[in-house]
Design a protein around this nucleic acid. Structure first.
Lengths: 112, 112
DNA sequence: TATCTATACATCATATATCTATGTATAAAT
DNA sequence: ATTTATACATAGATATATGATGTATAGATA
């Protein structure tokens, strides 16, 4: 696990990216996908994920529909048009920021 | 300027890296160097820099000696042995984290 | 069948780091 | 003479991830 602070500013971008690739996803599915893609290096806590989704909902970046699975109910989230725009913007911002870190920290990263 | 949150978790690593490369630096010099290396994309506020330096001092990552320049006094900071170790660790953590972001966000970055 | 683990959601208090605003003061530039 | 740059600092505001805790269903295992 990384220092908690590193994830700040990138968690929302990560969620947006997954939703951009998957049409709909429910919260637990998102957390599992992040764990998988990060080789368990990023393990979202419930207390991080659900409040983040609710903030994105408030900000109009996502909406959701509930779906019953047995007696349980999942909330399937989907990007709105606003969310789709924000997704591209936030991804670009992270690219740019990493480029800046690359310069300052001499990381020697290049895009292919 | 980037979303404020992005810098969190990396500011200390940036300061440590500059100190690893420069033997001694004073606060204002650090802020100017960061501005320069980032093409003004990262402009540290006094309220970020000085508290950060004081925390690093408390944590034993740096020490300093005061030096008079005319009637003004500069605080020249220097890495301690602990700080030097931390510098390498935090840089590696950021590399690793960016690698993970690379996977999740499909950034297509490679090290050269 | 009982128990543990995984699935699925949520809220509240806490921690932490950066920023904004503000303050003091010297030095250089216009 | 006035503005800008240099050089430090602190207090309060803000944002966001975490820890702790809660509820409840479903599946696995002993």
């Amino acid at each position: 696990m990384y220092s908690k602070e590193l994830l700040k500013g990138t968690l929302q971008a990560i969620i947006l990216k997954l939703l951009a690739e998957h049409e709909t996803m429910y919260g637990y599915e998102i957390s599992q996908k992040v764990k998988e893609l990060s080789a368990e290096k990023i393990v979202l806590k419930d207390g991080s994920l659900y409040p983040a989704l609710q903030k994105m909902l408030q900000d109009g970046l996502v909406d959701f529909k509930e779906e019953a699975v047995g007696k349980r109910v999942r909330k399937y989230y989907r990007l709105t048009a606003t969310g789709s725009t924000r997704q591209k913007d936030s991804l670009q911002e992270i690219r740019d920021f990493i480029g800046t870190l690359n310069d300052i920290l001499s990381l020697k990263l290049v895009a292919v």
